[in-house]
């Protein structure tokens, strides 16, 4: 399905209706999730109200791993088939992934200080997430460092795939090494160990973050298709001399989304 969507025309057909649906899901899940997280969910018997940080910390951390996984898949598609939209997906997902990872780190720090008595520790989970953050920054700066767009796309795609190795390290770091961080309590082989009264609002918040990311990606990629159409038009006519459209371009012919690939 992902390679099917790499065709800009088909992508637009899919994304135009999908983006507003994602937006509606985002708004609804936040409207339900935030009051549930802040008011209606119970306080933890040991952690008190500080447990409410979980509802923004855990979804951000999930997204940190999920977005990088999307980036690695997009990197594979970009590397093998050289689809421009896959490369664009990496370009727009990387800053968002970096923000989610920073959020996971900072909200974790804000939770760690009252509960562990420290803002930060160099343990496996925290350090591997910090590495993930630097991988995002690396992807962003790698593209900026290479002038040639095709070459940049190739190298970014390779870095995206190679860097993914850190995602399972983040996931299983709490099970493999001794860590201040608790072990997995939601996504684990024997099912969640967290109580339903906390699991539900957490799942809703997770869905909200996921839908939000989906909306942002679809919207950015729809804009990217327009940007590429503009570039295709300008390369035919020159941005300053649009008058040449008169002689060179048949009206209509240049506006097919496929022209972006030409």
């Amino acid at each position: 399905m992902i390679t099917w969507l790499a065709n800009p025309e088909r992508f637009v057909k899919f994304a135009r209706p999908a983006a507003p649906i994602a937006a509606i899901i985002t708004v609804l899940t936040f409207i339900i999730g935030i009051p549930w997280a802040l008011v209606f969910s119970p306080e933890d018997f040991r952690q008190g109200a500080s447990v409410r940080i979980m509802y923004v910390h855990v979804p951000a951390a999930w997204m940190a791993m999920f977005v990088y996984t999307i980036i690695a898949v997009a990197g594979f598609i970009s590397f093998v088939w050289r689809h421009v939209l896959a490369d664009a997906a990496i370009r727009y997902a990387a800053p968002m992934g970096a923000i989610f990872t920073a959020l996971a780190l900072v909200t974790g720090s804000l939770w760690g200080q009252p509960m562990w008595g420290t803002w930060w520790a160099w343990d496996a989970r925290l350090t591997s997430v910090l590495v993930l953050f630097f991988l995002y920054l690396g992807l962003i700066s790698l593209r900026g460092a290479i002038g040639n767009e095709t070459r940049a796309a190739r190298l970014v795609a390779i870095a995206a795939m190679v860097g993914w190795i850190n995602v399972p390290i983040v996931k299983f770091s709490v099970d493999i090494w001794n860590s201040l961080h608790q072990s997995a309590s939601v996504i684990r082989a024997d099912g969640p160990t967290i109580h339903a009264s906390m699991l539900w609002p957490l799942a809703i918040m997770g869905l909200a973050y996921m839908a939000f990311f989906a909306w942002a990606m679809l919207t950015a990629l729809l804009a990217e298709v327009d940007v590429r159409r503009v570039k295709a038009l300008d390369s035919k006519t020159g941005p300053a001399s649009r008058i040449r459209i008169e002689t060179n371009a048949s009206p209509g012919g240049a506006f097919k989304p496929g022209a972006a690939n030409g």
């Binding site: 109200a49 500080s50 940080i53 923004v56 959020l103 900072v106 804000l110 939770w111 200080q113 009252p114």
Partner: peptide, 9 residues
Amino acid sequence: YVWPAYGLS
């Protein structure tokens, strides 16, 4: 701790 976490998010 809680409000800055939600605020930054």
